[in-house]
Design a protein around this nucleic acid. Sequence first.
DNA 1: CTGTTAGCGCGTTCAT
DNA 2: ATGAACGCGCTAACAG
Lengths: 338, 338
Amino acid sequence: MPNISIKDVAVYAKVSKSTVSRVVSQKGYVSDSSRIAVMQAIEELGYSPNTLARSLVSNQSKTIGICVPFLNTPFFASMMEGIESEADRNDYDVFIYHTKDSIEQEKRAIEKLIARRVDGIIIIPVDTKGRQIKKAIGSTPCVYLIRQPSELQSINMVSVDDYMGSRNALEVLIHKGHRKIGMIRGVDVYSTMRDRWRACEDVCNQYGIDLDLRYVKTSELNFKSAHLAAKELLADYKEFSAIYSLHYWGCAGLIKEARDRGIQIPRDISLSSFEAFDDWNTIMPMSITSNRYPSVEMGQSAVKLLHQIIQSDSNISTSSVLLHPSFQEGKSVVEFKD
Amino acid sequence: MPNISIKDVAVYAKVSKSTVSRVVSQKGYVSDSSRIAVMQAIEELGYSPNTLARSLVSNQSKTIGICVPFLNTPFFASMMEGIESEADRNDYDVFIYHTKDSIEQEKRAIEKLIARRVDGIIIIPVDTKGRQIKKAIGSTPCVYLIRQPSELQSINMVSVDDYMGSRNALEVLIHKGHRKIGMIRGVDVYSTMRDRWRACEDVCNQYGIDLDLRYVKTSELNFKSAHLAAKELLADYKEFSAIYSLHYWGCAGLIKEARDRGIQIPRDISLSSFEAFDDWNTIMPMSITSNRYPSVEMGQSAVKLLHQIIQSDSNISTSSVLLHPSFQEGKSVVEFKD
DNA sequence: CTGTTAGCGCGTTCAT
DNA sequence: ATGAACGCGCTAACAG
């Protein structure tokens, strides 16, 4: 109940505050006798050092903040796993912030985190241009995760090679002989979605496949919208032999809709997808051929990079990490047969 | 770069620190002229109030800590959604801690949170007895989520009526005429699992059904273990017409294993499950008859309760919230036919 | 309405 | 090896 401070311990142990401070932070010389007295006092009084005060004087809080657009999607959850474990390893505590896919919330989150004097911020940017973020973030070390805001140049990034990943996921279908391929893509506001789509255009060009836009549906990055797109797409499902979903939600929507319509994968139609995540298997009963974001590793890399920046303390040089998606052969794709 | 403090603002605006403090915290009277000068100085200097220092003097940090055994499971992710949104509404920032299902980690997490002087803690206890937790938590307000540690009596709890939920989920099968029912249950260390299992015994008793333990498999609460249990259970799948999984992982394991074996749900076997979560639909393509934890609401309730405790400041009375699972009719259960 | 003073809990000189 | 004094950035109490 009574807040025990370093002073109380000092009095109890009959030494000065400095001495207590020395044994707690393990710096400087302390005689064994005093050390024992202090440790006993700490035990007796149930003293717990006040990190707030400590941060105030040391000018570093050993905390980092994470801004994530959604909390309840498996992908971000998996990434949080990587972030938390790596943060723990480097002795940071983590503030979590749900930006709710809103630029306003994001700005507010950054402001609050800075007011709390976090040592650094990891952000999956909602603000696609990055103007609001830049204004709010000041000189606090920051690592951008997944997407690069278009107006921000020399920044620290951890991202995945979306272009190559998308190519691979699509080529799987082509290599199996599919020529007519339906697609679900994401809205173009994010660089990730643009890159993935560009890969589709390039691949089709390269293989001489005609990209029929009637069978390319666009959706927002949530289940509802993707499910709707899947509905529309599957209405014409006789027109193509395979589907490539450029994102996770499309895949989920497709599987659900296919089931409801009695369309069997892969018997009636093949399916390849992008942006699954490490633990996808554990929640998705179907084995889907997909190109996966290394979600846990992404979180870890972001923290490692951030830590490095905080340490070096020089905001001059920036560095980026480009990770590679891992291709997973599933059972959702079969050879094309007429 | 240079850390701007209230003092800098004061000098710049040619007023005293107190005046700056007054306009920032919007307390006390300030003349319009000074207010304008201060606001301008703040803008000019890019001043951001230091929450650390503020917390130090006000003796409350407006932060809460969450200790959760796993981060990468959809259920907890969904719960985090509720926690974060409600915390935000009450102006708390949240520290997240991954206890990794380890009592040691849990203890350490609590200690770190207390050192950070969080105003309260929400914990999904790993320590089933609660001795470690009790020792570490001291007098910090705390809300226990989901499970009640066996040795802790008058505590603040948010839990779900596992017994009734389990009854309902099982009775669905019985009402459809199923008499031979395979089961996957969870290890007995958690009160939730005990309650759910007790419900099974009672229901079988009541309906005169013989609970054949050969077809009841026990698993840990993770995918791997549950998948193994599913494998074993489905080896005998001709022996029963329906399966009831007492937890989410069992359900996931069953669906996966059924698919791999070519067993169709519900054609070959009916399936009912407990402990899905609000957004289950968005990631699970199959429509499963299940009794769901109100995951988002649970998170919200926990924060509300915690906030209330912090406010009232009296650790004397404790209160509990008992939520009810919501039954969802799916397409995984059909009438029994011989 | 405003400035001065004191103190929150701690680390860090600097003497001793 | 240890203690006294100062300051981190801020709020609260008081005086004016």
